[in-house]
């Protein structure tokens, strides 16, 4: 469903992403793990149109979207919950969720999705009239995911959803990602520094270091890899 081929991203002359190839099939959960500055976020920003790739190709649902601007990519069914939450702080929880459905014209369908999202995140429902800027970190992360679901996506991109959250909340996020994938059949591309969490939810994973994919395979296989064990799972 998603196919990155030899994707590169340059900032000035520095390559942040260097010929990266990643695929995600229908209904799959795929993770990209790697250390700070590896180029994970840059990869995601390139595939959702926020930065122009300097080379390579992005195919989504059979369409070449390599040079598309972000608003058209969302409309095609690819929804990106960015690193650092990036909510609209002065808008309420509800307004943030409605922004997620910005391109959808069918009011009834949007109302249905809104109902589902509020059901999935009861804590957001309780705080629906609260400005997003005043939510706790965990609630903000829930809202980021909820907002990304409002477009009714076929595929969800999550950039470090567990960042800065307590272990209990990380587990909750993990369960939510799994249930979205199972119940809705939404494919997920998950970027995480928390390799333990990522390899627990994903079926397959890629390890990215200094702009390149250095290792890839099934999550089960990567959990046993000496390199992954030493560098990401703490021995």
């Amino acid at each position: 469903m998603l196919e990155l081929t030899d994707l590169s991203v340059h900032y000035g002359t520095v390559a942040a992403v260097d010929s990266v190839s990643v695929t995600v099939a229908e209904g799959e959960i795929v993770a990209i793990i790697g250390p700070n500055g590896a180029g994970k976020t840059s990869t995601l920003r390139a595939l959702s149109g926020l930065v122009r790739p300097s080379g390579g190709r992005v195919m989504f649902r059979g369409t070449d979207i390599s040079r598309w601007r972000p608003h058209r990519i969302v409309a095609l069914g690819l929804s990106h919950a960015p690193e650092g939450r990036r909510l609209f702080p002065q808008m309420t929880v509800l307004e943030n969720l409605r922004m997620g459905a910005y391109r959808r014209r069918d009011r009834d369908a949007v109302a249905r999705t809104l109902g589902e999202v509020l059901e999935r995140f009861p804590r957001l429902a309780e705080r629906r009239h609260q400005p997003a800027g005043t939510l706790s970190g965990g609630e903000q992360q829930m809202l980021t995911i909820g907002r990304a679901l409002m477009s009714g996506p076929a595929m969800l991109i999550l950039d470090e959803p567990s960042f800065g959250l307590a272990p209990l909340l990380v587990r909750e996020i993990r369960a939510i990602v799994q249930s979205i994938n199972r119940e809705r059949g939404v494919a997920v591309l998950l970027v995480e520094q928390n390799a333990r969490m990522a390899l627990a939810v994903a079926g397959r994973a890629y390890v990215m270091e200094t702009g390149r994919i250095v290792l890839s395979g099934s999550a089960a296989m990567l959990r046993e890899s000496p390199h992954v064990k030493a560098a990401y799972l703490g021995g």
Binding site: G49, H71, H80, P82, R86, M99, Y102
Partner: peptide, 8 residues
């Protein structure tokens, strides 16, 4: 950026 990702 966040607005662009919502389809604006």
């Amino acid at each position: 950026d966040a607005a662009a990702l919502q389809g604006v």
